[in-house]
Write a protein that binds this DNA or RNA. Structure first.
Length: 573
RNA sequence: CGGAGCGUAGCUUAGCCUGGUAAAGCGCUGGCUUUGGGAGCCAGAGAUCGGAGGUUCAAAUCCUCUCGCUCCGACCA
């Protein structure tokens, strides 16, 4: 490809709305142009990269025996009603919905469990046809509350979604392991540094799930990991340490204390001279279940924070949110800052972090403005709470699996694998006939890769102050031969020769024959980030070219006759 | 949805407070020169100032409403 014939427009200034490096550099390099909020047009160069990622993913999935197919983007409402998700997704507002000319309701597919399950139900009728693993690479549509960061969170994006169908849990475990292996190979091939972490299954549902995170400071997810044992988890999911507080002695009589204007844990600590771990703060949450709301009181050790994802799972509700001031006053009959388990209104659901289970003599609020109570013992002074692991783990905690210490990092979620089980097959009555002649629901897994997010994550991880530094496997071109002065015939001739040689050698190379000043060309190639650059300039007449490795901008003069071999060597061919 | 902010040429912005001929840089077009670090000169094209109302002799500027976009929180590949 000759760059003079490729539509490349780079900008000298950053677009005003770009905040993170990947958005800034992809926009400035002309790789993406915003069409509307969260909607981008990919340039020819960008599309080459997206296709390379897709191809790597395709190859690795195919190696595990997965089969590519294509499903419609438009889905009928009825299909989503059969799984029970229509109402929820519409209520969430995440789904784009529309009506056809007859007034029938449709949605733009945000994910394809319904369509694929229906397909499998139609086509797979016997255990003899199983296992089967089907995938597609296609645009997904989600009306994100806040699209942002360019390709990192768009409303339309390219996704690989795969679905496995098995006869039993063991089959699912095997399919899941294969996908895990395929994902590891695919992301390694893409040249990104990633980590696999345990994850909350969220709205998709199911038993087990792991996320593939590209490590980058601008990642939207926080992860915790332990270098000792390899434990790693999304902070939403991370298990918390299990050791209890030191012994607080035998249960002592409860005492009501006047604590004027003492509301926060810090203030209490100063007031009572008690360690924060001897206090239980009580937070009031509003849990939403479809069309009804319920109030829940959550007790947490004074020095710990609530993990709202865990809380949501414990309550088995659609969403949780801290109660506002008015609701708190209504429920506790007190100002904010004095809520506690003692004397809560009848019927209020009371939960507590499991670390409080069996803990004696806690300091709590007592639902009366200006008062706290000392020596609260659950079961004696207040209702026995339901205990769950509700604590937000944090860096510095002891690893839940060993003696190591948890460290934290930020990650960009580029892949996610789930063990769904029979959630969808049962809801949609999708069955096959087993060996015993009886109908059985498919045991399913689902798997996603953000195909358009992955290059953005790669840029996030791999750039410098001059521009993008593409990993070679997903760069729009692996190498470029650049003519510095296209009016010099010896430069053009040598460049054409090298360009031909590299193509012969199977290198994905382009010829930069654009008419621009040398300085502009250098800057442009740095911004565009092609991994290996062969610069044909002044020394062309001596048979010498400049070789630039974009990563680190290492430069050296090499004999033109050696240039092709050098590129091949660096590409490992 | 809640909070904050921004809409002026393809891009980045000035002008708005204090109403009075829409401005600059980049990019684009033509010409001449230039060619190893975003070249110079000359000549051009390009904006009904997001939209609608209002105030005023007069609105990019003041007021009201609306639409769009960005940022901070809950969703997810």
């Amino acid at each position: 490809m000759r760059l003079s014939q490729l539509l490349i427009v780079t900008l000298r200034e950053d677009p005003a709305d770009a905040e993170v490096p990947s958005h800034r550099l992809l926009a400035r390099g002309g790789y993406i142009v915003k069409t509307a909020a969260g909607l981008y047009t990919y340039s020819p160069m960008m599309w080459r990269t997206v296709r390379k990622v897709a191809q790597i993913v395709r190859e690795e999935l195919d190696r595990e025996g997965a089969q590519e197919l294509m499903m419609p983007i438009l889905h009928p409402k009825e299909l989503w009603e059969s799984s029970g998700r229509w109402e929820r997704y519409v209520a969430d507002g995440i789904m784009f919905t529309l009506k056809d000319r007859k007034g029938a309701e449709l949605c733009l597919g945000p994910t394809h469990e319904e369509v694929i399950t229906d397909y499998a139900n139609t086509f797979v009728s016997s255990y003899r046809q199983l296992p089967v693993n089907l995938y597609q690479i296609q645009d997904k549509f989600r009306d994100e509350i806040r699209p942002r960061f360019g390709l990192m969170r768009g409303r339309e994006f390219v996704m690989m979604d795969a679905y496995s169908f098995d006869i039993d849990q063991a089959g699912l475990d095997a399919a899941y392991a294969k996908m895990d292996a395929a994902y590891r190979r695919a992301f390694a091939r893409c040249g990104v540094e990633f980590r696999v972490v345990q994850a909350d299954a969220g709205a998709i549902g199911g038993s087990g799930s792991e996320e593939f995170m590209v490590i980058a400071d601008t990642g939207e997810d926080a992860i915790l990991y332990c270098d000792d044992c390899g434990y790693a988890a999304n902070v939403e999911k991370a298990d918390s340490l299990t050791e209890k507080v030191d012994d607080a002695g035998a249960p002592a009589p409860m005492e009501r204390k006047e604590t004027p204007d003492v509301r926060t844990v810090e203030q209490l600590q100063a007031f009572f001279d008690l360690p924060t771990r001897r206090m239980a703060k009580t937070l009031l949450y509003v849990a939403t279940y479809g069309d009804r709301e319920e109030l829940a009181a959550v007790m947490m050790r004074g020095d710990h924070e609530v993990n709202e994802v865990k809380l949501q799972n414990a309550l088995d509700c659609l969403s949780v949110a801290l109660a506002d001031e008015e609701k708190i006053k209504q429920a506790t009959d007190a100002e904010v800052g004095f809520a506690g388990p003692v004397g809560l209104p009848e019927g209020t659901r009371l939960l507590a972090d499991r670390l409080l289970d069996g803990q004696a003599n806690l300091l709590c609020g007592c639902n009366e403005t200006g008062y706290h109570v000392l020596n609260v013992n659950a079961g004696r002074d207040c209702a026995k709470p339901e205990y769950f692991d509700l604590r937000l783990a944090s860096a510095g905690d002891r690893c839940p699996k060993g003696d190591g210490t948890l460290r934290s990092a930020r990650g960009i979620e580029v892949g996610h694998i789930f063990k769904l089980g029979t959630k969808y097959s049962e809801a949609m009555d999708a069955t096959f006939t087993g060996q015993d002649g009886k109908a059985k629901p498919f045991v399913m897994g689902c798997y996603g890769i953000g195909v358009s997010r992955t290059p953005a994550a790669a840029v996030e991880q791999c750039h410098d102050d001059r521009g993008i530094v593409w990993p070679a496997p997903i760069a729009p071109f692996e190498a470029v031969v650049a003519i510095l002065d296209i009016k010099k015939s010896e430069q053009c001739e040598l460049a054409e020769k090298l360009y031909g040689e590299l193509r012969e050698a199977g290198v994905d190379v382009c010829l930069d024959d654009r008419k621009m000043s040398p300085g502009a060309k250098f800057k442009d190639l740095e911004l565009l980030g092609l991994p290996y650059q062969v610069i044909v300039g002044r020394k062309a007449s001596e048979g010498t070219v400049e070789f630039i490795v974009r990563k680190g901008l290492e430069k050296s003069d090499v004999a033109a006759a050696e240039a092709t071999a050098k590129v091949r060597e660096l590409l490992g061919r």
